[in-house]
């Protein structure tokens, strides 16, 4: 048998040994294949967004496609000053206020619901099904339902009323699901130990459960904020006379054909990144203060 044949005979066996064994030897061919796929995905994920961020910095001659024409902040100024782009500033303002409201309510209510779900209680399956139903129901249908309901009850729809509720019907199930995952890492013995040491139920929540779960609660807050800040379908029929930002963007996509649309994209993305950065920073800070794996042993 020639050396080449021998090598060929050995190859499959060796490949088999290496199959996803995480810490030994060279990388299997699948690594390179999947790494290529991953790179492709990330490029496709970020590429288009980066394009519009770049295009938003064109000057007055700018159009919707490349090549880039000039370099200025013209379209940002245009965005906040032109009548035809609508009340962007007001929409920003409302969206942020609404998102903060939604965040606070989502964190508190999801936390309480997750506390309830730690033990079985009569009707827990019904509540869970309702929650899943609320999560998957078509947003626009739900929004119309809320609108008709408010109409029938004689209440005016508004971003701080009907839209707030409609958004919560979407952010809360999400928040509770995230809380489930967070809670699964909570050791019930901590609670028992606190009770054993004389803590009252409220002290247990304040001194043990909330501080231990704090990073998870920040994650829920991040979900609440961004889901609300970006919510469209449920808000469309419930926001009342004053638009939120996604509704503003939606109307712009239908009638604005200038790079101010892209400028708006750039601005909202910057805000999103500030929020993500703050939240991740808070989580990292908390984990660091908790100092996992510092004293090596």
């Amino acid at each position: 048998m020639s050396a080449a044949q021998q090598a060929a005979a050995l190859a499959p066996a060796r490949a088999k040994q290496r199959a996803i064994s995480p810490s030994r030897g060279g990388r299997p061919w699948t690594f390179y294949l999947l790494a290529t796929l991953f790179t492709f995905y990330v490029v496709a994920l970020y590429g288009p967004m980066i394009c519009i961020y770049i295009l938003s910095f064109q000057d007055v001659r700018g159009g919707l496609v490349f090549p880039m024409k000039g370099l200025s902040l013209h379209w940002f100024v245009d965005l906040f000053t032109q009548v035809r782009t609508g009340d962007v500033k007001g929409a920003f303002d409302r969206s942020i206020k609404l998102a903060i409201l939604v965040t606070i309510i989502t964190v508190v209510v999801s936390f309480m619901a997750a506390m309830a779900f730690r033990r079985r209680f009569p009707g827990d399956n019904v509540v869970f099904s309702l929650m899943i139903g609320s999560l998957v129901a078509p947003g626009l249908v739900l929004g119309i339902g809320v609108g008709l309901l408010f109409n029938a009850l004689g209440i005016d729809t508004s971003w701080y009323g009907s839209a707030l509720g409609a958004q919560l019907s979407w952010t809360l199930p999400f928040g509770v699901l995230v809380m489930f995952a967070v809670m699964s890492r909570f050791n019930p013995a901590w609670e028992e130990a606190a009770r054993d040491l004389g803590a009252t139920p409220w002290q247990i929540i304040r001194l043990v459960i909330i501080p231990v779960l704090a990073p998870g609660l920040v994650a829920v807050a991040l979900f609440g904020f961004t889901l609300s800040y970006d919510e469209f379908a449920r808000t469309l029929q419930t926001a009342g006379p004053q638009n939120t930002l996604p509704l503003e963007i939606w109307s712009m996509t239908l009638n604005v054909t200038s790079p101010s649309l892209y400028a708006l994209g750039t601005v909202t993305t910057i805000i999103s990144f500030i929020i993500i950065g703050t939240a991740l920073g808070a989580i990292v800070l908390m984990q660091k203060r908790r100092g996992a794996r510092v004293g090596g042993h």
Binding site: A189, W190, E192, A193, V208, V212, A214
Partner: peptide, 13 residues
């Protein structure tokens, strides 16, 4: 009474 728990249940934070 006071209890010492299995795996101690020390408060991680």
């Amino acid at each position: 009474t006071a209890m010492m728990f299995q795996s101690y249940a020390l408060f991680p934070h």
